[in-house]
Design a protein around this nucleic acid. Structure first.
Length: 596
DNA sequence: GTTAGGG
DNA sequence: CCCTAAC
């Protein structure tokens, strides 16, 4: 709690680059701790008594894993480095679930051997200082727990080379070094609620630190642990030590007290913590930890969080756009040299929406700015917000920026661009084959694409972004995604099933896998189909005549569309002239023609 | 948040 | 496909 509070206190909202990095790294610990929390909870309690929410927790974990795994697969394919975690995480989690949790239960059964168990479980992990493993573990942490202290202690560098580890390590050593073995034992007891016979100072220290860290995290977020502790904490002096230890945990958690942006997140965290329900906590943690999957889950959520898309901002002011362009160019060139912030910004700007989206989902941050769904145009209010508070962005925006940035820096391998760029491509490809898709040029995309690789130009079509001159004189970006036959068929099918007009339903049920097709898109497409269908039917076979039709829709489908339209009492908008006069005549069944 | 329509 | 008005 203390830690959190401290964070909360800061309202600044400003972050430095370094801070950002910290932020990113820091975020992982909480989730990591989570599992540990459970773990610990079970074990400790077992020592003294029972294991309450364990089942639920497990279930939840399983669910979470499930969800994650689904979303993550894609990510993983794209970039192993970036998403290290995701696919593997699921595995790891599973592993943990089976091994860790089960183990815990086992421990519970015979409390006598707890010590041994602890040793067993703890030591191996520690010894395995393989960076890769640790990372994996921690990532899995979303649902499982990767002992933060362990990771930091053993292989600081392993954790993406952040500087955090050193800090924690240092602190921990200082705290415990002054304690005698007896004191260590006491501390141990206070921490774990049981005695230990181990005489090895180093081991004790390690264990305590570990335990405390976990417990601290827990205590900060969850009451359960606290409760566990309470019984054992009766001893005097122990509490004191705990406090110091708790302090220690603070840093580990990595929340920079001066870091305002993270503060926001923390606040939420805390709030949830108020709720005893572990379940809730869990879910929350996931959110905070930037569950990659977030995007996919509820578009609505993403929408709310997102910050106005660049393009909108650009559109708002010509100056801005100009600036952006220049910046983009320069930034791109100096990707390695520029300050991190500029780098991040640039990268974000440079790429198309898809990219950003991808980014967010991959990294697992919640990037408000762009939802995975294609266009997310800012609401009016948002725009206005941006306009008026240009200099002082909202907290959310800041956070996003930060997250993005951190993400970038985390993956800074020198070739971020290439990697990043590849992501969108894959993504696009995942859903469909765009063999016949019209290729538009994507100015920005091309730039990036070119850089990364050759022969990727085709892919760009996925994220078609075209600049279109507007009446105002500004340029507006328009992305186009040709409707594939399969999509059209799905649409038709959906309409037949759920009825025209229930676009959201159709979108949800029939187009669940097409994130880029919104209900509005469906509606528009249907409108066009209707037009086409009526058009084709009335004259001769216009369809055949126009070989260059943008979307060659097979006659059968069109006829089906017509049929459906009729069934639904829809009339073709284009045929107004004919239907104008024959309101009653047009519809055999007598249903309203639909247009007046 | 959805839909319908106009641009 | 974008943007809005209505609901």
């Amino acid at each position: 709690m203390e830690t959190v509070v401290g964070v909360e206190g800061s309202d600044d909202g400003k972050f430095e680059d370094s801070e950002i990095e910290k932020f990113i790294y820091d975020t992982s610990p909480p989730k990591q701790a989570e599992d540990p929390v459970v773990y610990k909870l079970v074990r400790v309690e077992g020592d003294g008594s029972l294991v309450p929410a364990t089942d639920d927790e497990i279930m939840e974990v399983a669910d979470l894993l499930k969800d994650e795994s689904i979303d993550m697969d894609i990510v993983n394919d794209n970039d192993k480095n970036m998403c290290i975690t995701i696919e593997e995480s699921s595995n790891a989690t599973t592993l943990l679930e089976s091994s860790g949790f089960l183990q815990c239960e086992k421990d519970e059964t015979d409390a006598g051997n707890i010590d041994a168990m602890v040793q067993d479980s703890a030591v191996p992990l520690l010894d395995n200082s393989d960076a890769r493993d640790i990372i994996r573990y921690s990532d899995a942490g979303e649902c499982s727990n990767p002992p933060d202290p362990m990771g930091s202690e053993l292989s600081p560098a392993a954790v993406s080379g952040s500087s955090k580890p050193d800090f924690s390590k240092l602190k921990g050593e200082i705290c415990l070094d002054n304690l005698s073995i007896r004191e260590l034992h006491e501390t141990f007891r206070a921490t774990f609620g049981r005695e230990t016979t181990v005489k090895d100072k180093a081991w004790l220290k390690r264990r305590i630190l570990m335990g405390l860290t976990n417990s601290c995290d827990v205590s900060a977020t969850n009451f359960t642990i606290k409760d566990n502790k309470v019984p054992t904490t009766g001893n005097e002096g122990n509490s004191k030590k705990e406090c110091s230890l708790a302090k220690f945990s603070g840093p580990v958690r990595a929340m920079d007290e001066s870091n305002k942006s993270s503060a926001v997140e923390n606040i939420n965290y805390e709030e949830d913590s108020q709720v005893v329900s572990a379940k809730r906590l869990r879910s929350h943690v996931l959110v905070d930890s930037y569950k990659p999957d977030g995007t996919n889950q509820e578009e609505a959520t993403a929408k709310r969080m997102r910050k106005p898309t660049r393009r909108y901002i650009e559109e708002l002011s010509d100056v801005e756009s100009r600036e952006r362009t220049s910046r983009l160019t320069s930034s791109y060139r100096g990707s390695g040299q520029g300050s991190p912030q500029s780098y991040a910004t640039k990268s974000v700007r440079s790429d198309s929406r898809t990219f950003v989206t991808r980014l967010d989902s991959f990294a697992g941050f919640q990037v408000p700015c762009v939802s995975r769904l294609r266009r997310s145009r800012p609401r009016k209010d948002v725009m206005s917000l941006m306009k008026f508070h240009h200099s002082s962005m909202g907290a959310a925006a800041k956070i996003v920026k930060k997250a993005l940035h951190s993400y970038q820096s985390a993956n800074e391998g020198g070739n971020n661009y290439a990697r990043v760029n590849s992501i969108p491509k894959q993504l696009v490809e995942e859903s469909e084959i765009y063999g016949h898709t019209a290729v538009t040029n994507n100015t920005e995309g091309d730039q990036n694409t070119t850089q990364r690789d050759s022969g990727s130009s085709e892919d760009v079509s996925n994220d078609n972004v075209v600049t279109v001159p507007t009446a105002k004189g500004g340029m507006r970006r328009k992305h186009h995604r040709a409707w594939t036959l399969s999509e059209v068929m799905k649409l038709v099918d959906g309409v037949s099933r759920y009825g025209a007009g229930r676009w959201s339903e159709i979108k949800r049920l029939a187009f669940a896998s097409y994130s880029y097709r919104t209900s509005v898109d469906l509606k528009d497409k249907w409108r066009n189909l209707l037009k086409a269908a009526n058009f084709a039917s009335a004259p001769t076979d216009l369809m055949n005549s126009r070989k260059h039709a943008v979307t060659p829709i097979p006659a059968p489908i069109l006829s089906r569309v017509r049929e459906l339209a009729e069934r639904n009492g829809q009339a073709s908008p284009s045929n107004v002239s004919s239907s104008k006069f024959g309101l009653s005549g047009r519809t055999p069944t007598g249903s309203a023609p639909g247009y007046l």
